[in-house]
């Protein structure tokens, strides 16, 4: 798969930062560029950002070179990275500095909440997020974090409730629908989950992962009496193959499973595969076998043992 120019730039800068000379200290300009690229592309590289960014914040040279607003942006970014890697002491220090500089900012409040969450103090975190929502009832970040707090406590039903309230307002947020679907799945509510994946597909039909997940949920919903769901799943797996130029192994496995289910569980006319479906099954089996032959011949026997490959290939 070809990479975008921005991805290549990020990879190159990261490489230069990681493999820098003079005792592993990357020059400030490089680190600054790395952090900027990560911010712009919303890339999450917590370990690298935490390591390089922390050094940048502490160095006096950086304070001279960077202008004020960028330095604070970097502070925020590094703080999130530190929370990701679990370095609470350093993060607390940065949050304190940010709170001192921007006492009223809701952005800093979200950061404080995240810090509380990281320490496991969910009550305090909830309080902070509720305070933000009181100020601005349409603060998406705080609302989502509130759902995460519920999830972190293991109270999935409350998380679902919060997320539903959020989606009632922001109903075109595909990532939130995806999260709701996985929450439903953890509660074994397949039907609701597949509704959520339908929404994801509607919002971003160009994203193959949503089609893939929707097809999976359709396949798991299908029973011998509702085989039309498996047939639909075949359709969505084909969409994924179309979007990924036939490179998705997951979709191929899914296709073969669905077709196998239709063939073995269906009664009478419903068990008969159409000509296209037969051709598709043969093609996928061929490609899958070829992939395994090329990349990992040892596992090929296991693939054959699953019994999902159509007989006669």
């Amino acid at each position: 798969m070809g990479r975008l120019p921005s991805q290549r730039a990020l990879a190159a800068t990261l490489d230069r930062c990681e493999n820098a000379g003079h005792g592993g200290h990357a020059p400030i300009d490089e680190v600054k560029e790395l952090l900027r690229l990560c911010r712009d592309g919303k890339v999450r590289l917590p370990e690298q950002i935490a390591r390089h960014g922390l050094r940048l914040i502490k160095s006096k040279e950086a304070k001279r070179k960077l202008n004020d607003s960028e330095l604070w942006l970097i502070n925020e970014q590094v703080c999130y990275a530190l929370l990701d890697t679990g370095e609470i002491d350093e993060a607390t220090m940065i949050v304190k500095a940010l709170s001192k500089r921007f006492p009223k900012s809701s952005r800093v409040l979200v950061l404080q909440g995240a810090l509380c969450e990281c320490c496991g103090d969910y009550d305090k975190a909830e309080e902070v997020y509720k305070k933000i929502l009181e100020e601005n009832e349409a603060h998406q970040g705080a609302w989502k974090r509130l759902c995460c707090v519920a999830k972190g406590r293991g109270d999935e039903e409350k998380a679902v409730k919060t997320l539903k309230e959020y989606l009632d307002v922001f109903c075109t947020d595909a990532e939130a629908w995806e999260e709701l679907a996985s929450l439903y799945l953890s509660l074994s509510m397949q039907k609701q989950a597949s509704f959520c994946y339908e929404e994801c597909v509607l919002i971003q039909p160009q994203n193959p992962s949503y089609h893939l997940k929707y097809a999976d949920s359709l396949y798991s919903l299908s029973t011998p009496s509702t085989l039309h769901l498996a047939r639909q799943a075949v359709g969505y797996y084909s969409v994924v193959l179309d979007l990924t130029n036939g490179s998705s192994v997951h979709a191929k496995y899914g296709l073969l499973c669905c077709l196998d289910a239709i063939r073995s569980q269906g009664r009478g006319s419903s068990s008969r595969l159409t000509e296209d479906e037969q051709k598709l099954a043969a093609k996928c089996a061929r490609e899958l076998e070829a992939d395994y032959q090329e990349k990992c011949p040892a596992l090929l026997a296991h693939l054959r043992a699953t019994g999902i490959l159509p007989s006669g290939t």
Binding site: Q232, V234, G235, S238, V239, D242, E277, K279, L280
Partner: peptide
């Protein structure tokens, strides 16, 4: 339209 993709993929 999804059903048409089966044909396409085959």
């Amino acid at each position: 339209r999804v059903a048409k993709f089966v044909e396409l993929a085959a």
